[in-house]
């Protein structure tokens, strides 16, 4: 299957939250006890959690005195920091673009949460049998040729789904066709080495609360800089220390120093 991607066109979003409901429905997620003003205005709940893999964020843009919407969901990075950090391989980047969690392999170390620049993976701290929760890209639906649940239900086509190349060129074309309507940036094209979810917006992304100022290089590269030397370093150290220890022991034997440890 070709690599898939999603466009989240925030200028088309009307804040109906159908995506949140569809996501809950498909992934069998529970309900939350919520507060009407849990966060800024009508945003509800305040953040992603074990019952919400996606969330429409509500911000008010004072200059225009109107809502601007954003959406939280896993960005499904091209080189995901979470999957690179996971010590058990519970998180994997799939060929269809999804970053998938194999729940039973998770040991709850929460390194993925630490590593994720978008603060997406969530953990149910209240549970005695907790685990990591995050958007699945509806990987199970993709395999049978369906679009992710959120993309399918969006009534205004704010969420669109297709092959990654096609989605990226579509996002760019949309900006080029209506430059006044969009800020000239496809969020997710280059952030941390590219992602499989592209966000478009009418206001600068920091006003939507998105993490801006991310490097364009994949974050795993930072770890990889030292991690890739590990085997070489290990065997060099082993050799060097072994040799030194052997020399020291022979010297001691010749000088008749008793082993004294």
């Amino acid at each position: 299957m070709a690599e898939k991607a999603m466009i989240q066109d925030n200028t088309r979003c009307i804040g109906c939250r159908a995506c949140m409901i569809a996501c809950k429905e498909w992934n069998d997620l529970g309900a939350d006890v919520t507060d009407f003003f849990a966060s800024d205005g009508y945003q509800n709940p305040r953040d992603l959690n074990e019952n919400n893999y996606t969330l429409i964020t509500y911000r008010e843009e004072p200059a225009e005195a109107q809502w601007v919407f954003g959406r939280l969901l896993c960005m499904h990075c091209a080189s995901p920091a979470c999957a690179s950090a996971c010590p058990t391989g519970a998180l994997q980047k799939l060929a269809n673009g999804a970053v998938e969690l194999t729940e039973w392999r998770c040991i709850g170390c929460r390194y993925c949460m630490q590593a994720c620049p978008f603060v997406i993976p969530k953990f149910d701290y209240g549970s005695v049998f907790p685990k990591i929760h995050k958007c699945t890209f509806c990987s199970d639906r993709l395999e049978v040729g369906f679009a992710p649940a959120c993309a399918k239900v969006c009534p205004t086509h704010a969420i669109e789904f297709g092959d990654r190349d096609e989605m990226l060129s579509k996002a760019k074309r949309r900006i080029a066709d209506a430059p006044g309507r969009y800020v000239p940036h496809v969020y997710g094209e280059t952030e941390v080495g590219g992602t499989n979810v592209f966000h478009l917006s009418s206001v600068p992304f920091e006003k939507l609360g998105y993490e801006t100022g991310l490097p364009h290089e994949p974050l795993p590269d930072l770890t990889h800089k030292s991690m890739r030397f590990v085997p070489r370093i290990f065997f060099s150290l082993l050799g060097a220390f072994g040799l030194m220890a052997w020399i020291v022991r022979r010297r001691n034997e010749r000088m008749g120093i008793a082993e004294d440890h």
Binding site: P87, I107, H224, M227
Partner: peptide, 14 residues
């Protein structure tokens, strides 16, 4: 399960 995995990119694994 960490001992039945192969994740050389993960510092925590190491």
């Amino acid at each position: 399960i960490i001992f039945f995995s192969w994740q050389p990119t993960s510092a925590l694994f190491e």
